[in-house]
């Protein structure tokens, strides 16, 4: 632990301000609470929102896990873990079940989260209506009046263009039947995991200076049309080439020499724990 740094990098009043915004976000599910996003030692757009949430929450007894695109060992995840552990001395882990704070970009872990865990998602664009309306003042008014035809219009336009909803990630959701929320760029596959989750889900956008939340056991419904119901990506007929798992979210890889396509678990920790179980570790 670096003795020259504040505990968890940020000074105490900054952490308190972030925690206050977080509390407000939890009390109004899906509502974007503005906060004074700090300069961080990583660039904006690289997870500063999530990092500030993590640092404001981390305590002595916590175990932190960081995922980037499902992987625990990608550069961004490793760097964030290093910063957290060098300024707090808390343990980092790769095992989903043993982590108390999980900061993630692009995925919700395959293993169901527990009531004593907090999932922190990094968000690039927190405003689900941004594509429809550029002005922040205008989108705030739309939220306050629960006027969400813009969110549906974006989906309608995709159906007109491509014959189906084409949101690869960040498919908008209605939270607690009040606010439409951008779930961060998680695949549609992960959207249903937000509904009535046992764990608290926090979302932080550092560049856009917003924090919002889905409290445990909150109703989260993905937006859809009557004749185009919401569907998750189909993973049928695929299995992981390492652990043999089915029904999980996969990375699609290609062998450069043979041109053969194969699939592998996107959640590396989940893959590892399945392989360990096989070997009786």
């Amino acid at each position: 632990m670096n003795p020259l740094s504040n505990y968890a990098f940020l000074d105490e009043s900054s952490k308190r301000e972030i925690r206050r915004a977080t509390l407000k976000a939890i009390s109004i599910p899906g509502y974007q609470v503005p906060f004074a996003s700090r300069e961080m030692p990583i660039a904006r757009g690289w997870g500063t929102g999530g990092l500030q949430l993590t640092l404001s929450l981390v305590g002595k007894g916590d175990r932190v896990k960081v995922i980037d695109q499902g992987a625990d060992e990608s550069v961004n995840a490793v760097n964030i873990k290093k910063l957290v552990s060098s300024t707090t001395g808390v343990e980092v882990t790769e095992f989903t079940a043993s982590a108390s704070l999980i900061q993630s970009r692009h995925r919700i872990p395959e293993e169901p989260l527990q009531a004593d865990q907090i999932l922190i998602l990094q968000v690039p664009i927190p405003e689900p209506l941004r594509l429809y309306e550029r002005s922040e003042a205008a989108t705030r008014k739309l939220h306050s009046e629960k006027e969400y035809s813009g969110a549906y219009l974006i989906l309608f336009e995709q159906i007109m263009r491509y014959g189906r909803v084409s949101t690869g990630a960040d498919h908008p959701v209605m939270v607690n039947d009040r606010y439409v929320m951008a779930p961060s760029p998680i695949p549609r596959f992960d959207n249903p995991k937000m509904d009535s989750s046992d764990a608290l889900i926090l979302l932080g956008a550092g560049r856009e200076k917003k924090i919002y939340a889905v409290p445990p056991h909150t109703r989260v419904v993905s937006l859809d049309f009557k004749d185009h119901p919401f569907e998750i990506e189909s993973v049928e007929g695929r299995c992981c080439r390492l652990c043999g798992a089915t029904g999980v979210y996969f990375d699609e890889l290609q062998d450069n020499e043979t041109g053969e396509t194969f699939y592998q678990c996107n959640d590396t920790a989940h893959c590892l724990s399945l392989m360990n179980a096989e070997d009786g570790v």
């Binding site: 549906y152 219009l153 309608f156 004749d227 185009h228």
Partner: peptide, 13 residues
């Protein structure tokens, strides 16, 4: 469709 959506229609067809 924007006006129809705003008026509460949720059927693409």
């Amino acid at each position: 469709a924007e006006k129809l959506i705003a008026a509460g229609n949720r059927t693409v067809g």
